[in-house]
């Protein structure tokens, strides 16, 4: 705001009016949605994680750190031995992070060229491509994951095809391997990589590439030094959108993997399903997962602010 007008209309923040008087009331639907659907469930899980487990599922309202203790320490069968580090769950977490990171990487490797290809088509074929990308999403993820299993199992069409063409003599065991889980995650979340990158490349001004080319950069350098840095927000958004759900995924590891490919998502799911579960333990695992996701997002947010500060 320019100085001469300031005395008449001395508002520092042009949005300040939104947060007082009637503005606050008009915002109430947003607050209710955020409160009921976001804050309340997370808060409940946080409380649950500090409560005592009920054997047929549910919780007893007695505060304890047992769930976190169980996650981190092994105190023997009867809980009377000196605590040692419990590796089971840490291993599951490490494996989940590794699998999610790998899925993110593969989605990026395949998703970036795909998004670039779509974004550089004519307006009409672009919408056809986007439609094709989203079509599988009209089918339930469970169904898609099961059909993936049918495709890759020992007697499935993939192995039958490879055997009939003589590439292999006996079926390759794909189901119940890390590779199968990887394939499932990749298949489930690829569009989440493609769409944000597509949006970024579509907005990209190709005159920038021409300018770089004009200034003696070859195509590879132009990609590396101009296109990728400029569309980076789209790439990061895609990576987060793939990494976060992959980390908590349970359908792909459950259906395509086996005991050796157990991931956090399945671990949590097991604690809440049926009567055999351990709600506080599931809640604690969720909280640990949530903390990890938040750390990743905070890292991203800090990068964004730094990039914006650089632009200011």
């Amino acid at each position: 705001m320019s100085a001469p007008i300031a005395p008449l209309n001395a508002k520092k923040n042009p949005n300040a009016g939104v947060f007082d008087g009637i503005g606050l009331w008009l915002l109430s639907p947003s607050w209710i949605v955020i409160g009921v659907f976001l804050l309340l469930p997370v808060f409940m899980m946080l409380i649950f994680s500090f409560l005592t487990k009920e054997f047929r599922g549910g919780v007893i309202w007695e505060p304890t750190l047992a769930a976190y203790d169980q996650f981190l320490f092994d105190r023997g069968l009867f809980g009377d031995e000196p605590p040692t580090i419990e590796w089971t769950y840490i291993t599951i977490f490490a494996r989940s992070i590794w699998q999610a990171a790998l899925a993110t990487l593969f989605c990026l490797i395949i998703g970036f060229p795909t998004a670039y290809y779509i974004a550089t088509r004519s307006a009409r074929s672009r919408s056809v491509w986007l439609f094709l990308i989203t079509i599988p999403y009209w089918v339930n993820l469970l169904i898609r994951t099961v059909s993936m299993k049918f495709l890759i199992r020992d007697t499935g069409p993939l192995n039958q095809f490879l055997m009939s063409t003589g590439v292999i003599d006996s079926p390759i065991h794909i189901v119940n391997t890390n590779f199968a889980v990887q394939l499932g995650l990749f298949y489930s979340y690829l569009p989440f990589m493609v769409l944000p990158i597509y949006a970024a490349v579509e907005r990209y001004n190709f005159a920038l590439s021409e300018a770089a080319w004009d200034l003696y950069a070859d195509r590879w350098t132009t990609l590396r030094k101009i296109l990728i840095p400029v569309v980076k927000p789209g790439i990061i958004a895609g990576c987060i959108l793939v990494f976060v759900p992959s980390l908590g995924a349970f359908l792909a590891p459950d259906l395509l993997g086996g005991a050796k490919t157990f991931m956090i998502g399945s671990l949590i799911e097991e604690q809440f399903k049926g009567n055999a579960g351990n709600w506080p333990f599931g809640a604690a695992a969720s909280m640990i997962l949530l903390s990890m996701v938040l750390i990743v997002l905070m890292f991203y947010a800090r990068q964004q602010t730094r990039a914006q500060a650089g632009a200011r």
């Binding site: 920038l208 021409e210 300018a211 080319w213 004009d214 200034l215 980076k232």
Partner: peptide
């Protein structure tokens, strides 16, 4: 010759400055 091999430079209509 491709554009990056020509000793010719261009000032673009919308400038096309590298934003990053």
């Amino acid at each position: 010759l491709p554009a990056n091999k020509r000793p010719v430079n261009t000032v673009f209509q919308q400038y096309a400055l590298f934003p990053h």
